[in-house]
Design a protein around this nucleic acid. Sequence first.
DNA 1: ATCCCGAGGG
DNA 2: CCCTCTGGAT
Length: 219
Amino acid sequence: MPRRTRLSKPAIAEIFRRLEAADPHPKSELEYVNPFTLLVAVVLSAQSTDAGVNKATRALFKIADTPEKMVRLDEAGIREFIKTIGLYRNKARNVLELSRQLIANHGGNVPRDRAALEALPGVGRKTANVVMNVAFGEPTMAVDTHVFRVANRTGLSRGRTPLEVEEDLLRVIPAEYALHAHHWLILHGRYVCKARRPECPSCSIRDLCLFEAKTPCSN
DNA sequence: ATCCCGAGGG
DNA sequence: CCCTCTGGAT
């Protein structure tokens, strides 16, 4: 008999019903005070923990919470605040140049459309999706390492690239869950369906999940 | 495919 | 020691 490789429609709806019940109003764990600081925080979060990003941005945003103030800080100034974050040289350069471009091309505001966001240095598809979702309330699906892993383990997608997984999720997730699905999957991946040692025994959607761990889940 | 690149956890 | 963390540019 063929091994199941995809989830049924009712199973998918039930997954998000449970994730919603566990966390009715999920929000980003990145700290920000406006669209600009959200954009910067997301750029800084690449390959880094948001706890580490928040520690740096609490001090940084106190000094620079607008593109104009960020430009005044300059690259060396920015670097001092984010030195504890991985990839900090590229990120400091990107944050400065991105701030300059916001002033030059967008009146100092964060643009809403994907093309304009992705034209900014350090901003790719995933970052653009997060900003569009969190700052502007659009039902985008940002596929990061967590979402990619959770989607493939559970059977929500079998995509081999982030874009394939994004397209699968947009097609498969019921409309009423679309806006928050990204955060539910992230939080589930961060605290339960962890990369190294998934906590299947305490997982709320274990009975619906298609993941068959080669190594035992927790015990 | 490779580089960037520090902190935290196991 | 090792792996992982809301990736992007070349």
